[in-house]
């Protein structure tokens, strides 16, 4: 589904990713962990297509297509979607507008007709209930005045409505209390399926207690330095990252 090969990327002239390789198959949940400055956020930004990130070498294939040649909106329509670490407040744009515009954009890309208003409202109400969000959220501006937890729930709500093929979750656990973390994790777990991939980028092992990954990677200094199963998380919890960095350097 996603194949990253030898990816090098620069931000403001500094090389951050230095030959990153990663393959995600349908049905798999991957976690990328790593210390601050390892390049985790750069990876998610490059995948989503944010400006200011220059790919200098390597390639990214999404379902066989060259992701780096696709516009931001085309990546989302093709099914690659990023839940932001810092969701943007958009004053004046109601959540319901965003959800509807996004869903209809996807449907149009698949050659389907726009969703009828009643069917749309039914779908959205169902997903709101799942995320334990009040339906007044729909008529509030996107993320405006939301608490940290509400913003993260809103990101997952969008995933539930839009059903991407590959959901990339960037530090989705940051700023969440334990109750909100459970709701967010339940939402993500409900997305797990044979056809869908999930990539979690996180600093903390705690998230992985709630969303158990199939594969864990450690990202350090712009490359994947270790890949293992879920037991790797426990080892990291116990020993930190330093032993890996030292091992990698030697």
């Amino acid at each position: 589904m996603l194949e990253i090969k030898g990816l090098h990327a620069k931000v403001e002239g500094n090389e951050i990713l230095k030959g990153l390789d990663l393959t995600i198959n349908p049905g798999e949940v991957h976690a990328i962990m790593g210390p601050n400055g390892a390049g985790k956020s750069t990876l998610s930004a490059v995948l989503a297509g944010r400006d200011g990130y220059e790919v200098t070498a390597g390639e990214i294939l999404f379902e066989g297509d060259n992701l780096l040649e696709m516009e931001v909106e085309d990546r989302a329509r093709a099914g690659l979607m990023l839940a932001f670490q810092y969701p943007v407040e958009i004053p004046g744009v109601k959540n319901v507008y965003l959800l509807k515009a996004a869903l209809n954009a996807q449907r149009a890309a698949r050659g389907e007709a726009e969703i009828e208003a009643p069917a749309f409202m039914k779908l959205v109400r169902e997903k709101l209930a799942q995320m334990k969000m009040d339906k007044s959220f729909l008529h509030r501006a996107v993320n405006e005045g939301f608490s940290g937890g509400e913003k993260k729930r809103n990101e997952i709500l969008q995933m539930l409505v839009l059903e991407p093929k590959l959901a990339i979750l960037d530090e989705i656990d940051s700023g969440l209390d334990i109750d909100a973390l459970r709701v967010v994790a339940d939402g993500v777990n409900s997305l797990r399926s044979e056809q869908r991939g999930v990539l979690m980028i996180t600093h903390y092992q705690r998230l992985l207690d709630y969303i158990v990954p199939d594969v864990i990677h450690v990202l350090a200094d712009g490359r994947i330095v270790k890949t293992g199963d879920k037991s790797l998380a426990l080892e990291l919890e116990a020993r930190g990252y330093d032993w890996l960095l030292e091992a990698d350097a030697s």
Partner: peptide, 26 residues
């Protein structure tokens, strides 16, 4: 706000529609 334009595009919203929505929001 280009960050907001990006956030909408990252959900699959056409860039022009994103700009229109943000204009109406203003």
């Amino acid at each position: 706000d280009e960050n907001a334009v990006f956030a909408l595009r990252a959900r699959g919203v056409d860039e022009s529609v994103a700009r229109g929505l943000l204009t109406l929001a203003f």
